[in-house]
Simulated assay, not measured.
Amino acid sequence: MFADNIWWTRKSRIQAEKRLLANAFQAQLLLIWYSFLSAAVSIYYLKATADNYANISWVAFSVLILSISGFINGLSYKERANQIKECYEKLSDIYAQAKAEDADLTKIGTQYQETLKLCENHEDIDFYITLCDTYLTHPSPKHRRRGLSKHPTCFIWIKVTLYYLKRYIALALLYLLPIAIFFVMELRATT
């Protein structure tokens, strides 16, 4: 059913917006964290006698922070999320039209195609997360899930689990990186 496809596309776009906004938040938080630690280490090395290797490493780290901030700004997470939001809001109107009994599917199909061009497409993982989330939050008993036209497969559950696992491990590594660099520099200086 065409209306059902519109509904799933809309839900996937909502998930894409959430992903982009989460990426924007984490990127900004990482930049603040890196900048804070860079400043804290600089103050620490004003008091401590550090070798030139440590000083040069932290200067390079500060330049890396500057480069990363330019790169993150270039990704335009918030602007892209806003475009996706506009798209799924229009899809909501199109979905309502498609659900009507006297719907002109040709006209709605054209509107649908034009609306999809307003922004980037959602990623496969956005659709997979949407499937899993909708399945888990559906009001029917878990063994039946009546009313859903699509259900997550075992493959999709594994993909979503691996996505979240990779995301959390990557974020943990990124947050721990400057601390690890500091301890490596300190260990090197004491040996």
Results as ranks from 00 to 15, higher is better:
151 H>M: 14
48 A>C: 11
130 T>C: 04
69 S>M: 12
35 S>I: 06
13 R>Y: 15
74 G>F: 12
97 Q>H: 04
103 A>F: 02
113 Q>I: 08
94 I>R: 01
45 Y>R: 15
14 I>Y: 10
183 F>D: 13
148 L>S: 12
35 S>K: 12
94 I>Q: 00
70 G>R: 02
120 E>C: 04
128 Y>Q: 11
191 T>S: 03
122 H>M: 09
132 C>A: 13
187 L>T: 11
166 K>R: 06
163 Y>R: 04
188 R>P: 04
32 I>R: 13
108 I>A: 03
81 A>L: 11
141 P>F: 08
55 N>M: 12
179 I>E: 06
171 L>F: 11
46 L>I: 14
107 K>S: 06
11 K>C: 05
1 M>F: 06
184 V>T: 15
47 K>D: 12
102 D>R: 13
113 Q>F: 04
159 K>H: 07
82 N>S: 15
182 F>P: 07
115 T>N: 01
56 I>S: 07
123 E>M: 07
1 M>R: 00
182 F>S: 09
66 L>E: 02
103 A>S: 03
182 F>N: 09
95 Y>V: 00
167 R>T: 02
11 K>D: 02
61 F>R: 03
122 H>N: 06
46 L>Y: 05
45 Y>N: 10
85 K>F: 04
128 Y>R: 02
102 D>Q: 11
190 T>E: 13
166 K>N: 09
132 C>I: 14
181 I>Q: 02
78 K>T: 11
166 K>E: 04
137 T>F: 08
120 E>M: 11
25 F>R: 11
12 S>F: 10
18 K>P: 01
176 L>A: 14
102 D>G: 09
81 A>M: 07
164 Y>H: 12
36 F>R: 11
85 K>S: 14
180 A>Q: 08
